[in-house]
Design a protein around this nucleic acid. Sequence first.
DNA 1: GTTAGGTGAGATATCGTTGTCTTTCAAGAA
DNA 2: TTCTTGAAAGACAACGATATCTCACCTAAC
Lengths: 350, 350
Amino acid sequence: MTEEINTGRTVGPRATMKDVAALAGVSLKTVSRVVNNESTVNAELATRVRSAAAQLHYQPNISASALRRLDGRSSTIAVLLEDLSNPFSATIYRSVEEVAIGRGVVVIGGSFDEDPERELTLTAAMARHRVDGFIIAPASRDHGYLAREQRAGTPFVFVDRPPVNMEADCVLSDSRDGVTRATRHLLRSGHRRIGFLGDLTTIYTAEERVAGFRDAMREAGLPIDPHLVHLDLRTAPAAEQVVGRLLDSANPPTAIFAGQNLVLMGALRAIRSRHLQDRIAVVGFDDLIMADLLEPAITVVAQNPERIAHEAATLLFRRIDGDTSPTRQIVVTSELVIRGSGEIPASVRD
Amino acid sequence: MTEEINTGRTVGPRATMKDVAALAGVSLKTVSRVVNNESTVNAELATRVRSAAAQLHYQPNISASALRRLDGRSSTIAVLLEDLSNPFSATIYRSVEEVAIGRGVVVIGGSFDEDPERELTLTAAMARHRVDGFIIAPASRDHGYLAREQRAGTPFVFVDRPPVNMEADCVLSDSRDGVTRATRHLLRSGHRRIGFLGDLTTIYTAEERVAGFRDAMREAGLPIDPHLVHLDLRTAPAAEQVVGRLLDSANPPTAIFAGQNLVLMGALRAIRSRHLQDRIAVVGFDDLIMADLLEPAITVVAQNPERIAHEAATLLFRRIDGDTSPTRQIVVTSELVIRGSGEIPASVRD
DNA sequence: GTTAGGTGAGATATCGTTGTCTTTCAAGAA
DNA sequence: TTCTTGAAAGACAACGATATCTCACCTAAC
């Protein structure tokens, strides 16, 4: 028995279509037809091929297939976000995975960490892998460099941040309006001195959030005390320090709006350590697990990452399927979730 | 000008090595040598090739390269975990990404949701994509089916749960010992009636955690009241209901150990709603963001997902690089983080 | 009976790249 | 001068698939 046919019991190389063809006694092309469920194969032959494939534990090589096929599809998409370990990005990734798996597509993830250079590195890596499409929350402020990849036929859907110098689909939260509504909510409780804490001003959404705050103040005809607006805050300790100084100042705010989760945590620590949690109103942006278990429970502007991801994935796959209609911008509404911390009236302190 | 050379300005197909070769006036193979930084190319030629590649925005096709090269490396690994949207899985993914990016390798993620069928689906998909290695927290309890892929040369590193019917590297938390230490801690505060809430008993770590609890009780010579042990709890509402019943019973526990995050949240809600948060001791498994902001702050057994991921990724890449030494099991220690809720003495209630 | 038409299956080229072999050419030794 | 040696660059095959073309073969119509 010097037979060369791989029976699947041997260690080593994987079975190829050639091996399956040899075992089934048919041509390579017939195996290809069976694997791709083409209807022009005799039923008995197809069964023979399938059983040979099963016996050899044949797994088609998707890369080889993509290389040769006309559409060049790799059954892979890239999901590139701020940081896959933060709940917002993680939820988006997971929700995209859910749509992708239904189409037999796998998802390559990447984190930009707000670093435009890392964005270049990662998008280039994805291009080398010939992903079928991108879902991207960019760190950079100019995305013209992606247009070439787009012209080569790879669709892009931007999430959380719109494309700049590029035409592409886009799914956003209504951050600006969400913050405006939250600020109005504070104003209705009588607050006039509201501290605003924002993330890096290079981030689109961070800018939108301040803008929403300014909108509401302007609308109410109130001046903004520049001492109460602190931007470019990224970490909890930084926010804790800033809020501590605000609270200890001669004319402290009666309410705080925290434009981001870590910043919210810092703010809460500063407030707690001064035992002011029942006197200073607090509203955060982005929901938190356990926000309801704090005392008072935290009022937040909650985004809807599942919905954002679902819209983005649906759009992307539609483009992959050949939709060439004009690009779309979808806005997913955010919701003010009232829990207590945002409803503390201004008068308590006065 | 009927020149066929792609200048990069045209819409359409991507530049290939052939295009670069034509523009640089060299052979295909020379371009390959330059792209792969082989030293046998004349410096001037190499420069010409590089500038042609840049002009055409040439991106090598990694799949084609993997297809042809002897080692078949796709520069892709799979990270398959319980649920990429939960903080533990998300942190592991992100930490693996960090190691991978340093090697120019991209990471495909997947979530099993404790569903063994989904595990089969996803591992097969990864095999079709010819990933270079797997980091996996399996949902199934028998991993023999992966041995074939392993024999074909793809290394596996198990995280959080050990391989069964398969020899592979493995990185675990010391869950059992961690829970034993936490239980001893409660016992030292005088607790004798401790409620234990566990996750699905099909999950390896869930079993380990109950076992750790039993170890500590046995060691202390205390009987375990079966009414106080509740397993197969997955959601916060389920846990809330169970803990509510426990607290309302004739002989309630003086302390609760919550074996998982969502279960901890349910327990806390039940306790809060009865205003017992300063009378019932609570210890959770897995750290939570904001655990320090609750009142009392939550004492937990904290795992170290970054460390687990780093060890796993390092091991995996060592295997990918050809290490054939015996498989290893690495145990990453967990830490009891004392914050207040776990230090409430039993006597307060008596 | 002959031929047109349709259908199923094989032969062959090819996708973009790397491995191997061959060729070219310059420099140094006999 | 001639030959050897070595390095650099090109020619060509092949990785595992699919696209396209061709070829049998069968049926139906004249």
